[in-house]
Amino acid sequence: MENSDPVEDIPGNADGGFDLPRGYGDNKITLMGRDPGTLYAYWEIKKDIDSGVREGIRKQGLIVSKSILRIYEAAKDSSAAGLKTAFDLELKDGADNWYIHVGGAGKAWRVDIGILCATGEFFPLAQSNVVRLPADEMSDICDEEWMCSEGLYHKMSAAAGGCDRGGSSFEFIHFHPRDAIHPRDAIQPRDAI
């Protein structure tokens, strides 16, 4: 039988063998918006910049307290130019990324990473890009030509399932065809082959 003796599949690393760099020699913090209430930041700080800032702090006679993320927010409909300090997060040693939970759907956000002194002075090491988180409610803005009252909006919204994200509920993970393509195969560990 022509195909009765298939050749062995190769177990283990199918396409790897690459050690990825831990960093790219950059000094930057990048901000991403995950959902209406969550930001994600990752960063890479150059050692010489970090030590230079710390040296400057010491020369000013100040005392380093901790490394922090300083989070800035702008009101929902205002531009990124209106950013104001919202809160700080203390960083654990060695952290290079962080999920930041905010109550800020539709608002613009920015994050600085830096050093906070015992007396409150803040010395930034890097400033992130600005991210506007997605909205999670009806817009207040109406189109004059295509008027839509709140009543009509809610009727149409109810007809659409009231913003139900049915096809994307958690069952998405379990029921997604790409996941279902080989659910049984998935329990065959490659290294057991």
Partner: peptide, 18 residues
């Protein structure tokens, strides 16, 4: 887009997602 991409869009969508 998903339904809420329209329903939370600006300006307020008078035809819903239809």
């Amino acid at each position: 887009v998903e339904a809420h991409g329209i329903l939370f869009g600006t300006p307020r969508p008078g035809y819903g997602i239809y």
